[in-house]
């Protein structure tokens, strides 16, 4: 079974600091000033979870379903 990756961003917790969009190694996010980031290149995501771990606001959840246990 192929794994599927889902990235959710909490509008409540996100403070729009831009860390995830600037530091994602695969440029998965796009973000405009004054807005929360948008997942626009999901296909490029390698599920490294760095965005989740670097999000200082606990706003990102990377959920991986299917595939092998990581």
């Amino acid at each position: 079974m192929r794994e599927t990756i889902h990235i959710s961003i909490s509008e409540l917790r996100c403070k729009q600091c831009g860390i995830c969009s600037a530091l994602c190694p695969k440029q998965v996010f796009t973000q405009e000033v004054g807005k929360i980031p948008v997942v626009s290149h999901m296909d490029a995501c390698i599920a490294c979870r760095l965005c989740e771990m670097r999000c200082p606001d606990f706003a990102i959840d990377v959920v991986i379903t299917g595939g092998e246990e990581r």
Binding site: G18, P56, D57, F58
Partner: peptide, 8 residues
Amino acid sequence: LPHTWCAG
């Protein structure tokens, strides 16, 4: 949450 700390 959201916590007390500044954005970034």
